[in-house]
Computed example of a mutant assay.
Amino acid sequence: MTRMDMPPGLLGKLKKLPQLSKMSESFPKPVSSGPVTKVVQKNPTFDGLPILKTWVGDAGRFITLGLVATRHPETGVRNLGVYRMQIVDGQHVIMHWQKHKRGAQHSEISKAKGERIPAAIIIGGEPSTVFSGIAPVPEGLDKYLFSGIVRKKGISTVRCKTIDLEVPANAEIVLEGYVDPADLRDEGPFGDHTGYYTPVEQYPTFTLTGAMHRENPVYLTTVVGKPILEDAYVGKVIERSFLPLIQMFHPEVVDFAMPAAGWFQGMAIISIKKSYPGQAKKVMMGLWGTGQLALTKMFIVVDDDVDVQDINDVIWAITTRADPARDTTIINNTPTDTLDPASPLVNLGSKLGIDATQKTIQEGFTREVQEKVTVDDRTRGLVDSRWSTYGL
């Protein structure tokens, strides 16, 4: 659910009650215990976990699919984020949350108050919760609620034993502690999803204070490296799930694709039903101002007769409908993904927009638009009937 308009009048509001009731079923439900509370460790350590060192150049072992739970220090909205964590010793990891991520933003608010921020590392659990941790949901939406919306039933939560946070009761493992924004350590290098080793940078330290887990927990992890790897399939689910949200703000959008080879932040392709001049650039600018899409380096906009999931069709549109001087937009000094290996400065670079839509006379295209080669219905019918005759 991304939108529910409130109708005018008492009768209209009463008619919405069934929808509100369904929404309430998605809210998280606190419980006193759950599968993850079966075993509580008094002297927890990272040493017993099968944490991977994936690539020969990695600085050490990294947790690569832990959901990091934090709570906004002022609003109380809970967040789940996936940030890599380098093992330092049995009680400490380095928390690689980038400037643009909500966990880092929560930490900065706590730092301004002179406080450390409670955090929990959640390993494994229900697919909807793992998806919620990865998904770029709108600002202010509680990730636990989003998980319930995805699964159409609220998740159960339990309180941590050593910190003031709630965690999913059906998790496999929960590692409790706090992040000290003043305790910075060198993190990396690490083979990342861009296909390059990220350079050494300083990030804050997480200290382990407690742990609990199922009786026979499963350690959920993934391998990160040059695409296309496992994370590509999670990214495709996010792409499909968030198309309706994009269409809510930009109703002209027909489809949206983030090719896995572009590590998702590198490139996005958007098809639109064009109805006025300059509309492709309007969509680009709007999406560059929307949440995590602000970090996307390249946007390609095509007409609705182009299949954004077919890269050959997209290349055809670029080469037949875009003029480099007229249809290329470059914007300097914009936010970039911290992991982008090409940006001239960390977190700061440029954007590229390609308008590969068919230009109109209102956009200064004075030539006659050439007719596109297509198969006529009669020929299509003849071919289809022949294939059917031979059982193909």
Rank of each mutant, 00 (worst) to 15 (best):
G12S: 01
S24M: 11
E25Y: 12
S26V: 05
G34K: 00
V40E: 05
Q41K: 13
Q41M: 11
Q41C: 03
L49V: 05
W55L: 03
D58L: 03
A59T: 11
L65W: 14
E74P: 15
T75P: 15
T75N: 15
Y83V: 10
I87C: 10
Q91L: 12
I94K: 00
I94V: 12
R102V: 12
H106T: 05
K111T: 06
I122V: 02
P127A: 11
S132A: 15
V137E: 03
G140A: 07
S147M: 01
I149M: 14
I149A: 12
I149Y: 14
G154S: 14
T162S: 14
L165M: 13
V167T: 10
P168W: 06
N170Y: 12
A171F: 15
A171S: 13
L175P: 08
P181L: 01
E187S: 09
H193M: 08
V200E: 10
Q202R: 03
L208W: 11
T209G: 05
M212Q: 07
H213D: 05
P217A: 14
Y233G: 07
V234I: 09
I238Q: 07
I238F: 04
E239N: 03
Q247P: 13
A257S: 08
G266H: 04
I270W: 03
K274C: 00
K274H: 04
K281H: 13
K282A: 10
M284I: 03
M285A: 07
G286F: 10
L295P: 05
V302C: 05
V306K: 10
V308T: 06
W316M: 00
I331D: 04
T336K: 01
P341E: 11
K351C: 00
V369Q: 15
V369E: 14
V375Y: 09
R386Y: 15
T389V: 13
Y390N: 06
L392M: 15
